[in-house]
Amino acid sequence: MQEHSLAPAIDIAALNKWYGTFHVLKNVDLVVGTGSRIVICGPSGSGKSSLIRCVNGLEKYESGTIRLADTPLEMDAAKSSAARRQTGMVFQSFNLFPHLTVLANCTLSLRRVQKKSRGAASEIAMHFLEKVKIPEQANKYPAELSGGQQQRVAIARALCLNPRIMLFDEPTSALDPEMVKEVLDVMTSLARDGMTMVCVTHEMHFAREVADRIVFMDQGSIVEQSDPASFFAAPTHARTRAFLSNLLH
């Protein structure tokens, strides 16, 4: 990866977040370079989902800064739509709109937010449905698709808005084992295209193959981060070693 003179895609500094009295993110610093692929892993409740939800503006945070490229994301994300428009989000539970067809799921925001015509929006949507390899499902409703297909639609829907950064929140955790691969394949091809990606996932094979950095979180802090080779071969922190030994056996 060549060095960019530009600001990093995501620059998180001293981020703190509480749910009531529960301190879910503790002074988190994380820099994500443009075009890099980060995998965040860690036990449940370690704050990994909260972290990327803050980056997408779905959660407020109490202190610290998040900058996307050069645009700061306000603590109350409702006020910073310009910054959050740079990110696309894929959820664990897909969150497709069940009352809309696959195509309408993809075109809704293109038409309402980007004010594109029906034709132009459909063209963009079909382009990305082809990219995730399900253009033939365009006129079906989400409930008529398998979980893997639904998650691929969700990825296409996010891509339609031309985000600079894609955030994945455990995208394969709600899937039957045999559907995991088709989703990871789409994510891998996205990574090959140079998309900046932050994935919360426990798919360690994917992490090893695709990530250029793995971030391990525990109890609201980043415990360690390194390239996949050293992460798996020589984790420095005892907590990481314990996590990995549980995960890989």
Partner: peptide, 21 residues
């Protein structure tokens, strides 16, 4: 589902659009 509102926000839909559509 709570995720519907979140998906609408993640897609940049405004409040009114999220309610209507």
């Amino acid at each position: 589902a709570k995720g519907q509102q979140e998906a609408a926000r993640a897609l940049g839909l405004g409040r009114v659009d999220a309610v209507v559509f």
